[in-house]
Design a protein around this nucleic acid. Structure first.
Lengths: 178, 178
DNA sequence: TTTAAGATCGACTAATCAGTCTGTAATTAG
DNA sequence: CTAATTACAGACTGATTAGTCGATCTTAAA
């Protein structure tokens, strides 16, 4: 999957032959299809793999007793940092989410999405957010992650600029807050 | 190009053989490659075509003497409406922008982008926006268009809901305003 | 009317690629 | 130790597909 991520980032899903994935990964063609019956299975498995790893990282960052805004900030920043550190993951998700593989159901089915949506619901209860469906609030925040990472990729000198990141979180926060 | 848009929306760039594009368009294989030397040429041409049509529509909506916020609102809403009315255009752009074809240079080279960025610069001068590079302001607004359209596609009963659209523009505006 | 340039056709090809198949090693279970 | 299951290899194939090529038709200018 790591090899596939690298190759997909470079040449896209369709620009990457399964044979090349196997070869670059140092395994045979046969063994690839032994573990992933089709290329589509591989791609879907990779999606959940990325989500899982981001989720684990994010959870390791939030601490108990954090306020709502702090929790959301931590999750938001964790996602940005993860994607900045792991550009292939970012590129993969971008491609995946605008491909026929993606559906809202798969998205919502993941713990990471569910956790974030719960935070949004809490915010709605507390009256800090605009009156918008929680899933949409979630998507607005996530799109800002996307925008931020994309911009940081283009302007790598900003990647260590903490104030810049914080500023963009405030942009996202201002968007959703009442 | 219209046929290709439809097919690309259904099956993606790579899932759509050139032969099928020609056949569905009612022309021969040969004539397709007569006008577009490669599939890539076709795809790039389609990108500029979509951008052009959106630009024309957007300009027809803005009126002289509008305030800055009104102008931006009109452009923003025009983009949303266009994409809601022309889902294949939207789907095509989504795919294009997360494909190897896309680059910031092509994006910035288009009049539509340039016009919007100019408005952002004006807003910065007037001190109404957060102190953020104009291109990034532009991208934040555009991502909100994306989010809005995607949500409207999933919840088609909201497509006639004017208040909903306006609400989401305010979300975008709150994000960038100081 | 002639001629040239562009438009259109559709059969063809060379290459590519997802997935198969057959056989062999390694590991685990009884 | 044996049997069965799982891991692995790599050659092979059938289908697909981007792009070519030579022929024919249409249009417009001279």
């Amino acid at each position: 999957m790591a090899t596939a991520r690298k190759l997909f980032a470079q040449n896209g899903f369709y620009g990457t032959p399964t044979a090349k994935i196997a070869k670059d990964a140092g395994v045979s063609n046969g063994i690839l299809f032994h573990y992933f019956p089709t290329k589509d299975h591989l791609i879907k498995a990779m999606y959940f793999d990325v989500k899982d790893r981001i989720f684990d990282y994010s959870l390791s960052q939030v601490y108990k007793g954090a306020t709502l805004k702090e929790s959301i900030y931590t999750l938001w920043l964790a996602a940005v940092e993860w994607y900045v550190e792991n550009p292939e993951d970012f590129n993969f998700m971008l491609q995946f989410e605008s491909s026929p593989y993606y559906s809202v159901e798969t998205e919502v089915s993941h713990r990471h999405t569910q956790l974030t949506i719960e935070l949004m619901e809490k915010g709605l209860e507390q009256g800090v957010f605009k009156n918008i469906q929680p899933f949409l609030l979630f998507q607005i925040m996530m799109k800002m992650v996307e925008t931020t990472v994309q911009y940081l990729q283009l302007n790598s000198e900003l990647q260590e600029d903490f104030a810049f990141r914080n500023g963009l979180f405030e942009v996202a926060w201002d968007a959703v807050k009442k």
